[in-house]
């Protein structure tokens, strides 16, 4: 048997590209936002919902969602919660320092199919991070889409991400933005309660609404139940799933859910494709 290695570029699989951190914002104690610039300001050419694998030498690699829209040129954004070895170290980096990037990987939101539709965003906790990529895509191509409804839930007001943008979403007459926190604070005047409490009050054009859901594993079941009682068809629901990822290219096996590799077939899934997939939701 002859196997050829000529057709593909060996650099692409495990060798990172060294990119520069060009801006940083600290949102919460645990979450920081970074703007990353690839060599020569090359675009990452990702789709909303895709991820890349970031690395620091001596520390390791981690899969992180891209949170800027493809319409942002010359650089892209990530928002990182400090939860593991890499993200801990990443939080100590400063503007001008470099990190390794491989990607983009995975399947994002099929935004071309969403044209002309109303977009319902449902984000819980750091689930808002990959969704920001889709939100900004809709905002930047506003006339291609119908309504933009954003539901955002967090544990408490201190954990809300993208605070400057939340205000803009709130003020934009073409965005219907609602936020809720599980636990309020003395200053908090908004909604309290879990994110599903925002769903019953929605007035949706059922056949023309696409729901995009991202949140902690526990959230999906309840959001899906709430959408089901709104009679939103399953075909209109997309969601992004988190799994352990090492290689990003469908080899290492860690992210597998049944026969599906989250790093290739996901992280964004069309709900009908995983509805009957055990261990998925």
């Amino acid at each position: 048997m002859t196997l050829s290695t000529q057709e593909h570029n060996p650099r692409e699989l495990y060798y990172p590209e060294m990119a520069e951190i060009t801006a940083i914002k600290q949102y919460t104690e645990l979450e920081k936002w970074y703007e990353i610039t690839l060599p020569g300001g090359r675009d990452l050419e990702h789709q909303p919902g895709q991820f890349a694998i970031f690395s620091l030498f001596g520390i390791g690699e981690a899969a992180i969602s891209i949170c800027s829209a493809p319409s942002k040129k010359g650089a892209f954004d990530i928002c990182v919660r400090k939860v593991g070895m890499l993200t801990e170290k990443l939080h100590q980096l400063e503007i001008g320092q470099k990190i390794g990037v491989r990607g983009p990987f995975g399947t994002g939101f099929p935004v071309a199919d969403f044209k002309g539709k109303d977009i319902l965003i449902i984000g819980g906790g750091i689930g808002i991070v990959p969704l920001r990529s889709l939100i900004n895509h809709v905002i930047d191509n506003r006339d291609d889409f119908g309504r933009l409804v954003i539901l955002y839930g967090a544990k408490n007001p201190q954990e809300l991400l993208f605070p400057d943008e939340l205000q803009k979403w709130n003020d934009d007459p073409r965005i219907e933005y609602q936020v809720t926190v599980d636990q309020g604070s003395p200053e908090w005047q908004g909604n309290t309660g879990v994110i599903t409490t925002l769903i019953p009050g929605l007035d949706l054009d059922l056949d023309n609404t696409i729901a995009a859901i991202v949140g902690p594993p526990i959230m999906y079941k309840f959001v899906l139940m709430a959408l089901k009682s709104k009679r939103l068809p399953d075909e209109n629901i997309y969601m992004s799933l988190e799994r352990r990822m090492k290689c990003g290219v469908g080899k290492c096996g860690h992210c597998q859910i049944n026969d599906s590799y989250v790093c290739l077939d996901g992280p964004v899934y069309h709900f009908p494709d995983i509805k009957n997939l055990p261990e998925a939701i």
Partner: peptide
């Protein structure tokens, strides 16, 4: 070049 992961 900044040494970002090497100890100081």
């Amino acid at each position: 070049m900044t040494t970002q992961t090497a100890p100081k």
